[in-house]
Amino acid sequence: MTILRFAVSPLWETVAALRVLAEPGYHPVHRRWADWAGRKLRDLGEDPSLLTVLASRPVVPEFLIPTPGGRTISFDEEVSFLPTVAKPPRIAAAVAAEPLARPLLDNREEALGAVLDRFRAVHDAIVAPFWHRLEGVLQGDIERRGRRMVDAGAPAMLAELHQDVGYDHPDVVVHGRRVVPGDRDLVLVPSAFVWPDVYLRDSPVRLALVYPAHGFGSLWERPDVPTGHSLARLLGATRARLLLELERPGTVTELARRLGVTVGAVSQHLAVLRGAGLVVSRREGREVVSLRTSLGLALVVGEVP
């Protein structure tokens, strides 16, 4: 029986970001970010590893983008898991016919170590600086899709992910290709950088479908002048300040300290903002961290139609 679930993958976003930079004209919505990120990437110098080559292929090797086992995972956790996934048989199945990739087979430990080092450097340079905003969009999309699945069912939700995605029981249809999940999990991975396409990762263990996250286009917009007064008239002073503070993630205790109000008051205001789809919260250990969603960001920058 197929289990349908969602996951956020910072590792995939790093790979997808490299793919955008390899062909920026194909992704005009990311032009502002691409101009900035291209400079950051050039500052790192030439890629001494195989990461850029592997990430830019039409089909990214499976061992480079393992599907997360849960909804939320950190980049460090994902990248540290790669040596376990990138075993010689899986590497050989993906790139054995490509001479450029021979180092991964002939000297796997050294070549893979170079890939991991470059992975971390690229992530730190072009994704980590705005990950708090990006994660809010991705987590907000999951909340939105989850509510839609409850209201209309999984087939309707799947059909709304992208024009090239459909569901014809028991198959998932992607770009006209029928894929039978079987006993595999079907993991839906929202992404800011995959637009305008979808990306299917078809592996023996998990079937992952990467699709454009709702509201990703507002990521690169920033107001020239703070809109706190307008937000305060709309939401009330405390909720407006809270939405502005959630430019970066925060726990209830942290937000209460930053706003100078009680923990109870923050909890109540967050509940209202979550109900309106402006904020999403998730548990990290013993703490609950809140993030601004794409709708919350659009409201802050004045782009809500």
Rank of each mutant, 00 (worst) to 15 (best):
P99M: 08
T72S: 10
H27N: 12
W33T: 05
E109M: 03
T84I: 03
A94K: 02
P10A: 07
L54C: 08
F119M: 15
E109V: 13
A114D: 11
V15P: 02
A93I: 02
E78F: 04
W33P: 04
P48F: 06
P61N: 08
Y26N: 02
G38T: 05
I65N: 03
T72N: 11
V115T: 01
A96Q: 11
I65G: 00
A93C: 01
A92C: 02
D76C: 00
W12F: 15
N107Q: 14
P68W: 08
P58Y: 11
A37M: 01
R5F: 11
P83F: 09
R19F: 06
V20W: 05
V115Y: 01
V79P: 05
A101E: 10
A34M: 04
V85A: 14
H30C: 00
S80R: 14
L104G: 11
L11M: 12
D43S: 13
R5W: 11
P83K: 07
V59K: 06
V15H: 02
G25S: 14
V122T: 05
G45M: 07
S9L: 04
R120F: 00
R39K: 12
P89K: 05
P58E: 13
D47A: 10
V59Y: 01
P10F: 08
R42H: 07
H30D: 03
I91K: 04
A121H: 03
A101Y: 15
L11W: 12
A86L: 02
A96E: 14
D106C: 04
D117M: 01
R42W: 01
V85H: 09
A96F: 11
R39D: 12
V95Y: 01
F81D: 10
K87D: 03
